[in-house]
Nucleic acid binder design. Structure first.
Lengths: 124, 124
DNA sequence: CAGGATCCCCTAGGATACTG
DNA sequence: CAGTATCCTAGGGGATCCTG
């Protein structure tokens, strides 16, 4: 099976141990990173929305993931000074760009999950 | 920022705790899974090639990653009964399909890594 | 409501040595 | 060459309690 590989320009760097892309990939493809990014691709959402949306996520991990993504400039945080507090999260332009790549990946995983995990038929 | 979200059909399942896609995503977006898949998108490669290519990977993790991907039907293993041993790895059709989604992601990470990590300007 | 702060566990992942 | 077998640890990630 031959393929559409990485442009040769990337071929060097991407596999290098010290390449910053390693870090970015780690953040972005972390257990919850993907889900949060994809969830936000549907538009601005509140903390509690995300908490319920990404079923199974702990408060700690939601906070941590959000903070990392914010530092990376992928997610923007809008805290409103009201009581009770209200904080909305949304994608930055760059985050949106990324989510456009992530959404097809997640959709693919969803489509193929059954066959991959349960070996339900080889057809495709 | 509004977006091209997941088709509503996926919206439910993907975020559910028990969804098999969680497992698939974990395998595929694992630290080394992405790199191996992308490396193989360039064509069949030997164990030792991959070991050198994915700079920093340990033998243990290479073996483990390859085995998981093989079980998932994404990578196929071709062991030739010669001395010294020679084993080639390549993508299955499904793995190839997946790599087509992964390659742009890695390329994006590579392009944006510097600005994300070092905050080198906001321009794009 | 939206988190911080703590404590703790588990396992992904590294290092090293050995083998068919 | 292409792995397995062991041992070991950093930190990803969960549970719980606290607060502006």
């Amino acid at each position: 099976m031959k393929a559409a590989p990485l442009p040769p320009a990337f071929a060097d760097g991407v596999f290098a141990a010290g390449c910053p892309s390693r870090t970015v990939l780690d953040h972005v493809t972390s257990k919850w990173g993907v889900l949060i990014l994809v969830a936000l691709s549907e538009g601005e959402q509140r903390w509690s929305d995300l908490r319920r949306r990404a079923e199974g996520i702990s408060e700690k991990m939601l906070a941590q993931t959000l903070k990392t993504l914010e530092r990376d400039g992928l997610v923007s945080r809008d805290a409103q000074p009201v009581i009770p507090p209200r904080v909305d999260y949304s994608l930055t332009e760059r985050g949106y760009e990324l989510s456009a790549l992530l959404v097809p990946l997640v959709a693919w995983a969803f489509d193929n999950a059954d066959e991959i995990i349960n070996g339900t038929g080889k057809a495709k």
